[in-house]
Simulated assay, not measured.
Amino acid sequence: MGVRSAVGTLLGGALLVVVALLLVGQLMGQPVLLGYVSTGSMAPTLQPGDGFVAVPPAFAGPIEEGDVVTFDARELDGGGLTTHRVVGRTEEGFITKGDANPVTDQDGSEPPVSRSRVVAVAWQVGGDVVVIPNLGVLVTGIGDLITGAQRQLAAALGTRALLGTQGLAYLLFAVGVAGYAVTAVLGAGSRERVRGAVGRSTGIANVWTVILVLALVLALVLTASMTLTGGERTFEVVSSQSDAAGVRVIPVGGTEELTYRIPNPGITPVAVYLEPASEGVSIEPRRVRLAGGEEANVSVSISVPDRTGVYDRAFVEHRYIALLPADVMDALYAIHPWAPILAIDALVCGLFALVAIAIVGTGVIRLDSRNPNVSTLDRLRRRFR
């Protein structure tokens, strides 16, 4: 492999990784290592469409004044992800402000931002945010293409199941299965021939490249299935001098309990972990393992301080496909909530790669060395004759 070919392969691989991260972020509804802004509220630091390196809060260390964070806003622009700078802190959370805005977010209707609502911290070097110009243009373009394809397929098939993030997961899975099937069919009959005719082939596909691409798609679908169904559960409670029916109003300094239902509508077993994401929350039990179609109830205790006011209370639900033993899952979760996801992705994708290699072999797939003008469809027809 020449230098130019190696550089092209590295750049192509880097682009593939970037696109995969952006697609995962689209599925999860939060930045995954890369984020971008769509408005000018952070100018001149970040112009509309500029991207940044999004560090997960667990790895970012303590959040301090001057940090630029992406958080789940309650009121700003109707709610949703917002990227602003931390300019202060109170007992209730962080005070945030866009660099181009004259007032803080909390001068409006947005409550102080709790640590649990921060989904990413922008990477800074020497006090300056590392900016990736026009990254948002790529994200928007990919999103438009995907959304358009989903709508066309949904209209053609007469179903709404292909719309939204769940529909995107279905499509990615279908693409992965189709790609794997085509690779297996085209490669099964050419594995032996290609060893002596690689130099003469005009249509060569590296098996490892194909497997890597399909494994990334599979990992993307698995990750989406485990993250989209979990997330933070947040609600407001009122600390009042008098009690009222329900859990929303609690006497000052008091505690009330609610029952949280955990369903598993799918057919695969899941492991669910719950943990408090704010003060005044306790959960019992904090780990539940459910078979397909099962459900369970857990008890959530909500406490308020001994002064009146409105307070945010939250807990986080993490869901995993239960492919690993319970003790292994517990050990991985103790390291970090993302550790079980990475282990499950590695297990499934590793098994997928072994099966693919057993069927297709290694090295290269010679699609057609004698007639490069034959289409893939014709090759598939010949394979099934």
Rank of each mutant, 00 (worst) to 15 (best):
L228H: 14
L228F: 10
T229P: 07
T229M: 12
T229W: 13
G230Y: 02
G230D: 06
G230M: 07
G231E: 07
E232M: 15
T234R: 14
T234M: 14
T234P: 06
F235K: 10
E236P: 10
V237T: 07
V237S: 03
V237A: 01
S239A: 15
S240P: 11
Q241T: 15
Q241G: 15
D243M: 13
D243A: 15
A244D: 09
A244E: 13
A245C: 11
A245I: 14
V247I: 12
V247D: 07
V247F: 12
V247H: 09
R248A: 12
V249M: 01
V249S: 01
I250V: 04
I250M: 00
P251N: 11
G253P: 04
G254A: 05
G254D: 05
G254I: 03
E256L: 14
E256S: 13
L258R: 10
L258E: 09
T259E: 09
R261Q: 05
N264W: 04
N264C: 08
G266T: 15
G266N: 12
I267N: 12
I267F: 13
T268I: 14
V270R: 07
V272F: 03
P276K: 06
A277T: 00
S278G: 01
S278I: 05
G280F: 01
G280Y: 00
S282K: 09
I283Q: 04
E284N: 03
P285C: 05
R287A: 11
G292Y: 02
E294D: 10
E295V: 09
E295N: 11
S301L: 03
D306V: 03
R307N: 00
R307E: 00
R307G: 00
T308E: 05
T308H: 07
T308C: 01
G309N: 02
V310H: 09
V310I: 14
A314R: 01
A314Q: 04
A314E: 00
V316R: 15
V316Q: 13
E317M: 14
E317D: 08
H318C: 03
H318K: 01
A322K: 01
L324I: 08
L324R: 10
L324H: 08
L324F: 09
P325N: 07
P325V: 08
P325W: 07
D327A: 14
M329Y: 06
D330I: 01
D330S: 07
A331H: 10
A334Y: 05
W338L: 13
A339S: 05
A339N: 06
A339R: 05
P340Q: 10
L342K: 03
